[in-house]
Design a protein around this nucleic acid. Structure first.
Lengths: 331, 331
DNA sequence: CTCCTGAGATAAAACGTTTTCTACATCCGA
DNA sequence: TCGGATGTAGAAAACGTTTTATCTCAGGAG
């Protein structure tokens, strides 16, 4: 490790002078400063992160709490987007885990590592997060709303406006919805769904709305069976995510039916795979890349000027991705 | 932030004494030490990571270099497994990026952050990694071989032993293989494929082996078209990964053929999705969870006793996951 | 010629730990 | 009773920075 002391020695200057030069601070002549910077670069000097953090209490490190949702493509994309953006801005990212043996909370973990800010991209464990959210560490949440904190998410309500528009134009009038666990996202989606249906004058029998879990093909399979058993069967089923659709499709086939001939299906997320399936999956594509980037941007704003930062709810537009899983009933 | 000084003050002891108590070091009476620890816990004291790192030059932080493969389920699973294990062992993980604006290499980045060790889980950018690999930072690589460094990967050669056994028993004699980019993994797989075919006396015409890229449906689609155009068409096609299979399946359907009636297909990886497809995908399931865990274990061994650690190549067993995409030709 | 000003540089403190070195009792054996 | 172990505690240095306060030395004004 080459330290600032070595650079100072080589330059024949004091440590303080070198520090000023490297940080572009006054108190050293511009020419000498430039020279020092050049020498430092040649020596491949990079300031020790720990020392700098200790002194300045800024770590250039942001924490991400992610739970185990890493394996869902939608979240992976978000994380990748965050990573790429933060990297460009000179920040590292560290996973913040709650389940440590030591009874450390996420908040304490973040404090201990002196994270400049934290991104929350998970649903459960609210209790543990509260402490963090109420602290004065800058926080931005994804797909989740916290009092007084910025949240970034798809326009879940409006998405159903687009979706129902699309389905209506395809001639669908009996549309059922399988939704995920309760939470802001689900509530927004349900509201959007009902509003959009009302707009077109579509009736939504109570039994057309059935609960399942996100990303659980088995659950959505069960829900699908329920819907298929109805006397007045829907012509189209909306799934809470693309993976759930796969569970539904399995069930549909098991009943001797086929997509989209006997029943149409519509996903959510628009993971890469949806386009590769046969029939290709009509779905609502969430712009994960954008969601991640916006979240990162907001967090940096909050970090750089906490006093002036005003929290807000940022919605990111997605779009209907047409596909063969929805039959055109007009023909 | 509650510091050790506050704890010392509260206990009426010196900072040094408290430090010894907390770290279970001699030089303080056991009873008093226990009491100090209790007080510290009550005060919710957690040692400042930066200060500790600065002093001890151990960060309890390990670097992971991951490129943009985050969005591939196989790698996501590995990462998640690593994360879970490291967390249990009290380590945090930080992404190490090469592409920083500052001309910092991965090595310098790891040094700057004082990473106790680094996990490499990517393919390209060898040049940049060399410096890291040749340093004396503990390193473990996944799916990649470095001179004198531990590598963890599936038994790519033996996997084809199992795969060909399975296919042979299903009556297949003409088996084609689409493989990914050149590299250890691909080389091992090709060798294993040829060896297994020889074992069963299967002839492998040159045109049965065609190159594509990993995780690129379009590429594998092209390769598939090539294979389908052969006079002596194979009865089964092996794909470099499950996602590539999807590209192949699209092409097969486009030609008016169907899986598995006209041609059987076999994937690689065994991502969750493979079981949800219809027809379900026969594939080789890599034990990503185990791969991640073993890599993490090895890295910690290397960290804890660098002198005694001996690098090795760790192969993790996977298994054939049968599926409907392979037709039983015996019937 | 002296005094003041201000720029440019240094010295030193501080951040929160760990660790080494030193000091002080206490206890035991002679 | 005294000297030397022994065990417990404190003081202080160090890790590599940043930052504040202090110093030095020109140069210009009076």
């Amino acid at each position: 490790m080459v330290t600032i002391k070595m650079v100072a020695q080589r330059c024949g200057l004091s440590v303080g002078a070198v520090s000023k030069a490297l940080n572009h601070q006054p108190g050293i002549s511009p020419e000498k400063a430039a020279w020092v910077r050049q020498v430092a670069e040649e020596m491949r000097y990079y300031p020790n992160a720990a020392a700098r953090t200790l002194k300045t209490s800024r770590s250039n490190n942001i924490g991400v709490v992610f739970q185990n949702r890493l394996v869902h493509e939608y979240f992976s994309e978000i994380l990748e987007s965050i990573r790429a953006y933060m990297e460009k801005r000179g920040y590292d990212i560290t996973f913040l885990n709650d389940e440590r043996d030591s009874g450390m909370s996420v908040y304490e973990h973040a404090m201990q590592r002196q994270c400049d800010g934290v991104l929350i991209a998970q649903g459960s464990a609210r209790a543990d997060l509260d402490r963090l959210v109420q602290s004065d560490i800058p926080v931005v949440a994804i797909d989740q709303l916290f009092q007084g904190r910025t949240a970034v998410l798809s326009d879940n309500a409006d998405s159903f406006n687009q979706i129902i528009d699309y389905l209506y134009q395809m001639g669908h009038r009996r549309i059922a919805m399988i939704h995920g666990e309760d939470g802001e996202v689900t509530r927004m989606r349900l509201a959007g769904f009902h509003r959009a249906c009302r707009k077109w004058g579509l009736e939504v029998p109570e039994e057309y709305v059935v609960a399942a879990k996100f990303q659980e093909p088995k659950d959505s399979g069960l829900a699908t069976r329920q819907l298929l058993a109805l006397k007045n069967r829907p012509t189209c089923i909306l799934y809470p995510d693309d993976i759930s659709y796969l569970g539904g499709a399995t069930e549909i086939e098991r009943q001797g039916l086929s997509v989209p001939e006997d029943i149409s299906c519509f996903g959510y997320d628009g993971i890469r795979l949806s386009r590769l399936l046969r029939p290709s999956l009509a779905t609502y594509r969430q712009d994960a890349e954008q969601i991640g980037r916006r979240a990162a941007e907001e967090l940096l704003l909050a970090i750089e000027d906490p006093k002036c930062y005003v929290p807000q709810i940022v919605t990111v537009a997605g779009s209907v991705q047409p596909g063969d899983s929805v039959k055109d009933l007009n023909q």
